[in-house]
Design a protein around this nucleic acid. Structure first.
Lengths: 334, 334
DNA sequence: CTGTTAGCGCCTTCAT
DNA sequence: ATGAAGGCGCTAACAG
C-alpha cells in the first residue's frame, strides 16, 4: 500500500504551491485562492495524503486528543457513559485516549497526570472520586468536564441528573402503591450519587409522614453481592418491610436473588425498585422497575461540552432528567 | 504548577551536558558515564521533566501508542477483554487509543485506518468481523494481535479459547444430567464463536446418540431479547425440551425470563446453561450454570503478545481454556 | 493572498 | 563516551 509516507511537501510539489499554502487549506486558517485550493485538494486526494498527527501537534500545540478518565471497576452504568463520550467524539477530529482510575484516588490522579502529560486538549472525567481541589490543580492546565457525577464548584462543567429528585420519585412510586415499610439499600457513601439517592429516599418518606426507622437502611457498595448481603441483614433484623429501593440495579438484582433464596416472592411479598436501568434490570425475573439515566446521551453531551470549551464556542449546559421505568417488580398493596 | 514546559534542553543545562547525552540516558541507547548519568537523572527529577511524546514520536518513529479496536455494541464480555488489554498496557510505556468498529465491517475498517494513520505501534483487535484478507492489508503496516476471536490464518497472532470444546462440555453436562431434548439458542452465525459453539453442541449430541432435530435449534443474535424470542419460538413449536444451551449468558437470561413468563420453572421443568460467565448470570434467579472465559486475562495476554511482537522479543502464545461454572439452573432428570 | 523563515522537542548520525 | 548538527512533518509569524 503506502510505500513511503507522503508529506505536506510532496503535495506542495505536485500542486505547485508552497508548504504554507498546503497547510493553510489543510487548516483553513487563512483564505487561499480557489484554484490553488482545488489543486491542493486534488493532490492530497491523488497521493492519499494523511497529515502526521505528531508533527502537527509538535508544531501547533493542539494535539487533537481528548483524555477520558474512567473508573472501570464497578457499575456498567459508567461504561455506557464512556461509550457515549467516545461516540460524541466520533464525529469530530478528536481522538480519545483513556486512562483508568479504578475508583482509587491515587490511581485516578495518576491517570489524569498521564493524560495531561500526553498533552490532551481536554479531559472528561466519567465519575471519579478526586475532590474539587485536586481537580482544580489540573483544571489550570487543561479544560475538564465531569459527567455522571455532581461536584460542588463544578456546576458549570459537569453533566448529571438530579439524583435526589429521582430517588424521591422512585420512593414516591412505592408510597403511592401503599407501601409503608420501605427499606433502602444504600450505595457507597463516598459517592455523592449515593448520598443524594439516600437523601431523596428520606425526603419522600418524610413528606409522606412515614417513619424513618434505622432498621430500614442497609449499607451497600453498589455491587450485586452487597444487595444479597443487605437482604440477609434485613431479614435478620426481623422487622417487616414490603418494599426495597436499592441505589442501583446491581444491588437490586442481588436483593432479588436473596429474596428468591429466602422464598420471598417478588413482587407479591416484596416490591423492588432499582436505579440506572441497566440491561440486567430489564431481563430480571421479574423485570425490575428502575430509574433510567440517559447514560450514553450524557456522555455525548459531555464530549460536546468539552469541545465547546476547547474551541471557545458558546456552550450551554444541557439538562438531563431521570425517568422512572415501570416494570413488574412493584405491586400495589391493598 | 508547571509554568513552562521544561525540555531536554533545560535538563541538559542544569546537568551540564549536551542534549544528546540526556537523550541517551533517557533511552539507554548508548553507554553514558555514570556520573553524568546520575547528574542527568537528578536534573530530571528536580525539574520534574516529562518527555514530549509528540516530539519523540516525530523524531524517533515509534509512537508508544497501541491501538485497540473494540466492537462496543454487544456483549459485555468484550468489555472485559478490552479492560484486560488496557490493564496489560498499564504497566508498560504504551498508551492505548481506542477506536470502535461497532460490529460493522465498514466502521471497523475506518477504525483501523484511523489508528494506523495515528501511527500506532501495534493493534489489538477485540473481536471483530473483518476477514483475513482485509486484515492482511493492515498487517503489513503494523503488527496486529486478535483476541477473543478465532480467525483462520491468524493462529499465531490470536488469543482464544476452544469454543467448540467448551460448548461440547457444556452440552455434555446437560446430557450427564440425563437431558435428551436439549435445545440450542444460537448466536449470530457471522461470528466464528457462534458457529463453534453450535458445532460443539452438535458434536456432544451426536456422540451421545441423541437426535439432532431441527426443532431444537433457534437462531439468536447474542442479545437478551433474542433469548426471549427463542423461547417463544420453541414453545410455539410444541415439541418437548427439558434443557437449553444458549450461546451466551445474555440470551440465556432472556430465555430464563421468557420461561418465567410462560410459567415454566427453572430448573425443575427446564434447565439452562449460558456462556461467558457474565455477572448477570451469577445473580440470575436462579444463578445460571455457564462457561467461564477468562476474558480479562486473555486481554492482558494479548497486550503482552503484541508488545512482544513490537519489540521483537520471543513471544509464546499462551493457552486459555474455558471452564464450566456449575450453578443452580441445571437439574438432574430422574 | 502567498512564499520564506523559524522553530516545536527530540533522536541520530558524525565526528571527536 | 560525548558534543555538534541536521532533520522528523508541520504550523506560525513575517514579509511581500
Amino acid at each position: 500500500m503506502s510505500k513511503k509516507k507522503i508529506t505536506i511537501q510532496d503535495i506542495a510539489g505536485t500542486a505547485s504551491v508552497s508548504k504554507s499554502t498546503v497547510s493553510r487549506v489543510l487548516n483553513g486558517t487563512t483564505p487561499v485562492a480557489e484554484d490553488k485550493r482545488l489543486a491542493v485538494m486534488e493532490a492530497m486526494k491523488a497521493l492519499d495524503y494523511k497529515p502526521n498527527v505528531f508533527a502537527r501537534s509538535l508544531a501547533g500545540g493542539k494535539t487533537m486528543t481528548i483524555g477520558i478518565v474512567t473508573e472501570n471497576i464497578g457499575s456498567p452504568f459508567y461504561d455506557s457513559v464512556t461509550q457515549g463520550v467516545m461516540k460524541g467524539l466520533n464525529s469530530t477530529e478528536y481522538t480519545p485516549i483513556i486512562a483508568d482510575g479504578q475508583w482509587q484516588p491515587k490511581l485516578e490522579r495518576i491517570a489524569i497526570s498521564t493524560l495531561v502529560d500526553r498533552q490532551v486538549d481536554g479531559l472528561v472525567m466519567v465519575g471519579g472520586l478526586l475532590d474539587s481541589e485536586a481537580l482544580d490543580e489540573f483544571r489550570q492546565e487543561t479544560p475538564i468536564v465531569i459527567v455522571a457525577r455532581s461536584l460542588p464548584g463544578w456546576e458549570n462543567e459537569s453533566i448529571t441528573i438530579d439524583n435526589l429528585a429521582a430517588a424521591k420519585s422512585a420512593t414516591n412510586h412505592l408510597i403511592e402503591n401503599r407501601h409503608r415499610e420501605i427499606a433502602h439499600i444504600m450505595g457507597d457513601q463516598t459517592h455523592q450519587d449515593a448520598k443524594d439517592r439516600y437523601q431523596g429516599y428520606k425526603a419522600a418518606m418524610r413528606e409522606a409522614n412515614l417513619p424513618l426507622s434505622d432498621h430500614l437502611f442497609v449499607q451497600g457498595n453498589f455491587e450485586s453481592q452487597s444487595g444479597v448481603n443487605a437482604i440477609e441483614t434485613l431479614l435478620r433484623r426481623e422487622k417487616p418491610f414490603t418494599a426495597i429501593f436499592a441505589a442501583n440495579d446491581q444491588m437490586a438484582i442481588g436483593a432479588r436473588l436473596a429474596l428468591y433464596r429466602a422464598n420471598i416472592r417478588v413482587p407479591q411479598d416484596v416490591s423492588i425498585i432499582g436505579f440506572d436501568n441497566q440491561s440486567e434490570s430489564a431481563y430480571s425475573t421479574p423485570p425490575l422497575t428502575t430509574v433510567n439515566q440517559p447514560a450514553a446521551d450524557m456522555g455525548v453531551a459531555a464530549s460536546r461540552m468539552l469541545i465547546g470549551k476547547i474551541t471557545n464556542k458558546p456552550v450551554e449546559i444541557p439538562t438531563f432528567s431521570a425517568e422512572l421505568i415501570l416494570r413488574e417488580s412493584v405491586a400495589r398493596i391493598d
